[in-house]
Design a protein around this nucleic acid. Sequence first.
DNA 1: ATTACGATCATCT
DNA 2: GATGATCGTAATC
Length: 239
Amino acid sequence: MTPHRSGGTGILQAKGMSLLPRRFYCAAPDLVARRLLGKILLSRTGTSVLAGRIVEVEAYLGADDPAAHAFSGATPRNAVLFGHPGHAYVYFIYGMHSCLNVSCEPEGRAGCVLLRALEPLEIYGGEPSSVEDLSAERATVGEKIMRRNRGLASSAPARMIASGPGRLCQAFGIARASHNGIDLTLPDSQLQIVKDGFRDGEIVTTPRIGIRKAADRALRFYLAGNAFVSGKQELPRTS
DNA sequence: ATTACGATCATCT
DNA sequence: GATGATCGTAATC
């Protein structure tokens, strides 16, 4: 049983998860990016909890990274990047898509991590009273909501839910107007990142996707072999 | 299987 | 007025 290669939607115990503290984010973006792999993004609304394991990220630096929004200095749009670490930076792009970043570095220094893909998870709040309790209705609510948010049929493969920065925002209902600037480290925050007992396997490093400037820098990171990473599937070698 | 393009808008030149 | 940290569909090989 290799958790990072789990082929489908997993069940997650709410117990045993702990909220990442501010200091987790107070470091260079490439370090924070690697450390975020395997952690869990939570969106808690009044009636539901959406959860996804972070399986793909990109680091964006500050003044020395031409591909970063912070490269040309602070503007109203990117102000969050220059504030305290551990906050959500949400921007709108291509006229259609929202993207979610997590700010890092101490206040005054810009830098962030773009979340590029999640493996959808189900949160189970209490002790399961039976196996049936887990496998039936309650255990599929989160994915149902994500599919509905994405306009996906129940027959669509699960990797269509959140394998891409725009997709994961749509699945979680994340937009700039409602989520930009949220502090991810507060116990009552709608958006949080937590750790559980998950251990990463191998991490793959590649150049970042879809950028023209600084396209050679290897600042994209993902969990090797994970089926929920964006882009075309890596086919297993047969020879 | 791979490539091309349209949608659609906040931000910056 | 152009561009982009994208995605889904259509066209082409």
